[in-house]
Amino acid sequence: MNKLQKLFNTKKKDILSIYFTAGFPKLDTTGEIIKGLEKSGVDFIEVGMPFSDPMADGPTIQESSEKALVNGMNLDIYFRDLEEIKTQVDIPLIAMGYVNQMIRYGSDRFLQACVDVGISGLILPDLPLKVYEEEYKKKFDHYGLVNVFLITPQTSDERIKEIDAISNSFIYMVSSASTTGSKSDIDNSQLEYFERVKSMNLNNPLIIGFGISNKETFSQACEYASGAIIGSAFVKAISKESNYEQISSFISKIKS
């Protein structure tokens, strides 16, 4: 059992996760942001691997990715940065990016590097369930890494059950039919969807993401799920200054 799986074994509600893009706002800010988030009481972190063509992302994460790439971020630096802080942090980390990055790096080399720097799991939104089952599941299991799948308001109950069966940490519940960072509040149709999935009593905990931006939406999400993920709103908040004060003030507002 890796760190992320342990977290879900011990903590069942109000789990707060933060996404940020490695190499943004500056090339060398990745380690400091992780340490700051851990110190601020965040439960786990998605460390974004910036990609040239992030098709599931809205403008905020597109821009942070573009800037990070201009800053010079690449997977070698990404893994080196995480290696450097490996002994200083204990918070579960997930690498989030796109499947082409893993394929081009070489999947074994990529997964080995993830394990070596202390990553617990992957979120690769464009890695389809079927391809994962047939080509990658054995490898992920071999390296002790989990793969996190997304579900959306359009995902059928049958498919949600399939995803639940293959998941071994949590299910990423996308709050609405949208790219990241699109919505600012949660409406009734979304609550109905949360309620519907909650009532399925799945084996894996649900963590809600996309459109969670503040204390209000975080608390609402936590009523229906084990926790929530904030991405774009955090990336926006640290776009100018990414020091500890900035990070802890953002997190304390969510948790207050």
Binding site: M55, A56, V99, P125, D126, L127, P128, L129, K130, V131, F149, L150, I151, T152, Q154, T155, S156, R159, V174, A177, S178, T179
Partner: peptide, 19 residues
Amino acid sequence: KNGFYGDFGGAFIPELLYP
């Protein structure tokens, strides 16, 4: 039947586009 031409093709899309 899986949408491939030999090694190439398929549908590498986010779950959001699956339906």
